[in-house]
Every structure is written in structure tokens, then in C-alpha cells.
Design a protein around this nucleic acid. Structure first.
Length: 375
DNA sequence: AATCCTTTGAAGAGA
DNA sequence: TCTCTTCAAAGGATT
């Protein structure tokens, strides 16, 4: 486990790096409830293999095989978990070298080039920059104008906006080491670490490009120069800059509606009372990792089902080296830090109950069912 | 249309 | 302090 910090002095925050990975046994306990059945896994496995064999071009074959291996391993692991019945927790995830011996190299993704992966862009929650725009782990691949001028990219992913950011970018707060600054148009202006830091982690802003955290704000910029908060529409930060962590109250649907308004109705009707926007939780390390790697896994596996992809990503996450994970923990820490600065009074509790969940009832039911099965 | 599934981690609530 | 719950992303599947 990444013992990044506690020793390192850098308050990597919370204890995120120090938290032990859940033992497999912990997950096993859920398995009977969540019904990731052998059949499902077998289907996943076989579909992966088949798709790999059928669809993958030779060059991508190794990746497809690897992906299939992921699925197979997952399947086998689940079977083993069933057999062990949660009694024997294995060594904590990522240092289970033997079990994941095939993984570590996976994340040395030099092949994760800007144009290789399938864009995972969703029409539900648009992502400002598809993760193939730049990979955080390949900091030597900075933003380039090519990304913005490429015909396939939306015309509103403008270089001029980056330039604006660049022009007005203030000196960065020591607390905000440039992590969220949108890279300017110049390659040379991005240090390797900046390239990593510049990776978008929040959904697309209504303007059609990912708005970075407003560094000026975090540095204590004057609010008075900006629009009055009451005049802001959902998704806008108090600066008037749309912030990706802010979404309209009721989620994706509203976000779509909101985007449509932004696109088709440049002057949205005033009649609508601006609902109090929802400020999303900052992403944790694994979420950041998933966001980064999802496109790659999708490309490799020709899978799109997020549940299956997330399982693979979970495995790969455990297989990451300490250093690799540290990057994400660090990024997540900075995310939280900046989030706290941007929304000082915000609490995760604010979003409680905004999702209607049937799961809990289901789990209760299943648990009662389990109680029936368990002696 | 709304919710589920699936993952890990952070944070809050309650015992 | 410990345990449990909820939410964060994502997109196909299910209700």
C-alpha cells in the first residue's frame, strides 16, 4: 500500500494512501447479494474473448488478450472467492504480486497516445476533454493546438479560450500548485508535472470545454468583479465561471436540459427560477483513475458496460504500483483541497438523499434472504 | 424516465 | 473509535 505520505511529510491528506485495500474477502461478502454470477462472468469472459478474437486487429491483439485475461482472472477470482467464502482474505490488493503479476506493466501506458483511444464521450454528461486528449501518466504529451484544431473536435473547444486562461492566469497560489490550470497554448509552458495536472477530471462545463478550477479564485481573487451570485445560472461558480463540480439540481437530465439551453437558447428564459445547483463531491483517487483509464479499457476490450469495465479497472487499480497510485492519491488530495477552497461550507451530506436508491431496500431484502440461506 | 450495476475512496452519521 | 451508509463517474441493462 502506498505509504506515501504519512512518512513523506506532505500531508497527502487524509489517510487515503494509508488505507488498506479491502481484502478480497470484504468484496466476497457482497458477491452473493450482488449476484455477479458465474454465468454473468462466463458471459463476460466469453464475450471478451470472442470480441477480442473477432474484432481486434492484430496490433491490438495483445491488449485484447490482456483484457480478456482481466475478465478471466476476474472470473476465476470470483470463483475462488466463492470457494473461500470470505474466510481467507488474501494479501491486500496491490502487493499481491503473484496474483497480479501480469498487471504492473499494464499501467505503463506509453501506448496511451492522444489519438489511440476511442472517445468515451457521453452525450449525457459531456466530458470536456476526452481522456485521450492527454494522459496524466504521459506528461510528455502535452496539449497541443492539434487537439483543438483537429477537425473532429468540436469547434467550441477553442484554443483562444486556453489562451485567455493563459493570458490571465495569475501567479499560482502555493496551495494551488497549478494543478488545475488549463494548460496554455504553448507546449513549452507545460512542465511534465503540469501536463499530468492538467488532466481534466470534471465533466464538461456548459460552455463546451472543460473549465479548469479558477485559479484566480483560489488565490483569493476579488469576487466583486464578477457577476453577482444571484444572477448566476446553475453550473456557474460565483465567479461566473462554470464549474464542473456544479451541476443542476437533479442531475444528468437537468444537465442535458441545461446544455441544450446553453446551445440553443443563448439567452435562457428568465422565467425559470434558478435552482440551487448541486455541488458534486470531489473525485477520489480511484474515480480519477477510472476517468482516466476508462477509455483505454473500452478501446481494449470493446466493452462499454460500465459495471464490467469498473470491475476490470478495480483489478488494475490494485495492480498499480505504489508510485502510480500515488499520483492519483495526490491528485485526489488536491482535488479535495481545491474543492474545499472553492466551496468552504459544502459538505458531502448536502448531496445525501438526492439520489433515490432502491439498492438499500434491495440489500435489505437480499440480506434477509441471505439470513434465510445462512445457517 | 428512473434506477441498477460495479468499482474504490472520502466523508458523514450513529452506536 | 468503529461500523455502516451515501455519493462520486460511467454507460449499458433493467424496471
Amino acid at each position: 500500500m502506498p505509504q506515501l505520505s504519512s512518512g513523506g511529510g506532505d500531508d497527502l491528506g487524509a489517510n487515503d494512501e494509508m488505507i488498506s485495500f479491502k481484502d478480497e474477502g470484504d468484496q466476497e461478502e457482497k458477491i452473493p447479494e450482488n449476484a455477479f454470477t458465474e454465468g454473468d462472468l462466463a458471459d463476460l469472459k466469453s464475450s471478451l474473448v470472442n470480441e477480442s478474437e473477432i474484432n481486434q486487429i492484430p496490433a491490438a491483439g495483445s491488449e485484447a488478450i490482456r483484457c480478456a485475461q482481466d475478465a478471466v482472472r476476474l472470473y476465476q477470482q470470483k470463483q475462488a472467492d466463492h470457494m473461500e467464502d470470505g474466510v481467507k482474505p488474501q494479501d491486500s490488493g496491490m502487493y499481491r504480486g503473484s496474483a497480479y503479476s501480469g498487471y504492473p506493466f499494464l499501467m505503463l501506458s506509453d501506448s496511451y497516445l492522444p489519438n489511440t483511444s476511442v472517445s468515451p464521450l457521453s452525450n449525457k454528461v459531456p466530458v470536456v476533454q476526452p481522456s485521450h486528449a492527454i494522459h496524466p501518466l504521459t506528461p510528455l504529451i502535452p496539449y497541443s493546438n492539434e487537439h483543438f484544431s483537429h477537425g473532429s473536435h468540436s469547434p467550441h473547444a477553442p484554443a483562444d479560450i486556453s489562451q485567455k486562461q493563459g493570458v490571465h492566469r495569475p501567479s499560482q497560489s502555493p496551495d494551488m500548485p497549478g494543478f488545475y490550470s488549463l494548460p496554455t497554448n504553448g507546449v513549452g509552458q507545460i512542465t511534465p508535472s503540469m501536463g499530468w495536472q492538467s488532466q481534466p477530471v470534471y465533466p464538461l462545463s456548459p460552455c463546451g470545454f472543460r473549465q479548469p478550477y479558477p485559479t484566480a479564485l483560489s488565490a483569493g481573487a476579488t469576487f466583486s468583479r464578477f457577476t453577482h451570485p444571484l444572477m448566476l445560472s446553475p453550473g456557474m461558480h460565483t465567479t461566473g465561471i462554470p464549474h464542473p463540480a456544479i451541476v443542476p439540481h437533479s442531475g444528468k437530465q437537468d444537465m442535458d436540459h441545461y446544455n441544450r439551453n446553453m446551445k440553443q437558447q443563448p439567452e435562457p428564459k428568465r422565467e425559470k427560477e434558478p435552482k440551487k445547483p448541486t455541488i458534486k463531491k470531489p473525485l477520489n483517487a480511484f474515480m480519477l483513475y477510472m476517468k482516466e483509464m476508462r477509455a483505454k479499457v473500452i478501446a481494449e476490450c470493446t466493452l462499454k458496460e460500465s459495471a464490467a469495465i469498473n470491475q476490470i479497472l478495480g483489478r488494475r487499480w490494485h495492480a498499480l504500483s505504489r508510485e502510480e497510485q500515488a499520483k492519483y492519491y495526490e491528485l485526489a488530495r488536491k482535488e479535495r483541497q481545491l474543492h474545499m477552497q472553492l466551496y468552504p461550507g459544502w459538505s458531502a451530506r448536502d448531496n445525501y438523499g438526492k439520489k433515490k436508491r432502491r439498492t438499500r431496500e434491495k440489500q435489505q431484502d437480499s440480506s434477509s434472504d441471505n439470513s434465510l440461506h445462512c445457517s
